[in-house]
Amino acid sequence: MSDAPRFAPGAAVRVKDDWPERRGPCHIRTPHYIRGRRGTVVRPLGAFANPEDLAFARPAPKRTLYHVLFEQEPIWHEGKPADTIMVEVFEHWLEEA
């Protein structure tokens, strides 16, 4: 999974609406509030060992990490329209929007 990044800057993406914490012990770095949300790739940040494996001392293949930009207002139904949230998201949490 440390191949070339699947998404380029500007790509429209959607964060998977997945809730592994409901299935059992896990460690995930994708905050709840962006799951299922559409965002825009700012840029790939490089490939890093998957924290979901590192947390359990399992072999941890590298995954591409992205900076993804979201609009604040649709998430919270408050805030100024132009305000944004930028979050580091691993590739396996992203799909094409």
Binding site: W19, E21, R22, P31, H32, Y33, I75, W76
Partner: peptide, 12 residues
């Protein structure tokens, strides 16, 4: 109907 986040996942 949004699932309840994990304890530490406190954004918002």
């Amino acid at each position: 109907d949004t699932p309840i986040p994990a304890t530490h996942d406190i954004g918002g």
